[in-house]
Design a protein around this nucleic acid. Structure first.
Lengths: 247, 247
DNA sequence: ACCTTATGGATAGCGATACTGTCCGCTATC
DNA sequence: GATAGCGGACAGTATCGCTATCCATAAGGT
């Protein structure tokens, strides 16, 4: 298999595949001569994985490279690699103002982790991320939202239990590593989408199905989201998609 | 208040504030003469909000502009605006291969929504996002992960109930709109961080605290994540655990 | 054997994003 | 009246994720 077929069977343009090779996201093919190489099914699979991480999971090329490098290293135990992959995946807040609010946020995170008996090393970037969210909420005066921390933590705990269970159903360890990567990356997106739908549902007033039309808690239409990216964005949608029931 | 003080009290460089003004993220100040304008506390607040959405929430400038425009329009009811904001916030997958796998994913999403009795309009971009995640899982052969859908949906439902409850505790409606925006944007980040910490905890083997050192389910350290972005990423981190906090 | 097409590798360019820097005429303030 | 700062316009910069071009070489049909 050469690059053209690789492109055909993945739908990814050949120049992009070359780019992935350059960037180390894709191992080089087996060279059969000075300027010829053989690729196989593993390359096809890898390209699909890269696209999933980048397009669906929203990872940057550099992050995807790191994550895949970690995945490829088989040295460490099954669950240990979760940490490695996670660390490579997270993009911690670049710079944080180290003031009093920040310190309190960090303290709050530490307390939460201890309160729940979670085993977590202090260097886990997610802890910094969480602290920066808490600090931001504090600085915006949205302190009431902090009450939700434990509610979220409950949900996270429950979800993770199920995740681990499903993950361990895998017999072979290679596919476990890949499953892990896919899962960490896509799980966030999946949950966030579900949460949004659940939010819409909760915000939409109940109607005792006497009315055929949708209750429409959401007034804009899907096309609008893209369309506004170019224009001036001054006019927030004159579209009459599904006018508000209560306005 | 003029631009310099606006910059001082928010920590955002003056040229960036000018940029935000140009892009319509920030309403223009009240002009007192041909080239002089007055800003006030509302501008300070808005700039902080913009930074929260962009830096912590990860929104693009264009998306933040749309979201804020929606927030500013007070025409629609409290909960209706949730939909508007949500729609503006989501970046649906650009292009999707409309094949058999895709159709099945869409069907699965529809079924889920019906099964749970969720009230959701079909144009909600989160539905497309969710479908694309499911389709991707299918195409990668990670079909076992689809079992988690309901587990996630349960968690999402529970979380949203609590969110709504906290949101409605607000007496005034203006701060509700802002709270909504902050919350939709930061909630994802916050939950994802919590999930990562919970994952680390679940993956870290229990030790009956006979040992002083951390069990370390995660082998890399925080600094490594940035550092690897430039180099080859072959060597997963020989650095010691807690590097000096940069100034 | 010949000739068209494709390949791998290197390097340069492109379009979008989020700023950043510079300039300029004007204004506020000392 | 000097001078520092202002608002506004516009050009420039850095990064990201490709995309395009070029080249010597190799594959494959005739």
């Amino acid at each position: 298999m050469r690059i053209a077929e690789l492109s055909r069977s993945t739908g990814v343009p050949a120049p992009t595949i070359k780019y992935y090779l350059r960037e180390g996201l894709l191992p080089p093919g087996e060279r059969t001569s000075r300027n010829q190489a053989q690729y196989d099914e593993r390359h096809v699979r890898r390209i699909k994985l890269v696209r999933a991480l980048v397009e669906v999971g929203g990872l940057s090329i550099a992050t995807a490279r790191d994550v895949l490098a970690r995945m490829d290293a088989p040295e460490h135990g099954l669950l240990t690699s979760l940490g490695k992959v996670q660390f490579a995946m997270s993009t911690p807040p670049s710079a944080t103002v180290e003031d009093e609010v920040w310190d309190e946020a960090v303290r709050r995170v530490d307390e939460l982790i201890e309160r729940r008996g979670w085993r977590s090393v202090p260097s886990n970037p997610a802890r910094r991320t969480l602290a920066s969210v808490l600090a931001t909420l504090q600085r915006l005066g949205q302190t009431d939202k902090l009450d939700l921390l434990d509610s979220y933590a409950d949900a996270a705990e429950r979800i993770v239990d199920d995740e681990i269970e499903v993950l361990l159903r895998r017999p072979d360890l290679d596919s476990l590593a890949e499953g892990l990567v896919v899962w960490i990356a896509l799980g966030d997106v999946m949950f966030s989408a579900l949460r949004r739908i659940a939010q819409e549902s909760a915000a939409t007033p109940r109607v005792p199905d006497s009315n055929g039309q949708a209750p429409a808690g959401a007034g804009a239409d899907a096309a609008d989201t893209d369309a506004d990216a170019d224009g001036d964005g001054e006019d927030p949608g004159p579209e009459p998609a599904s006018p508000a029931p209560e306005s």
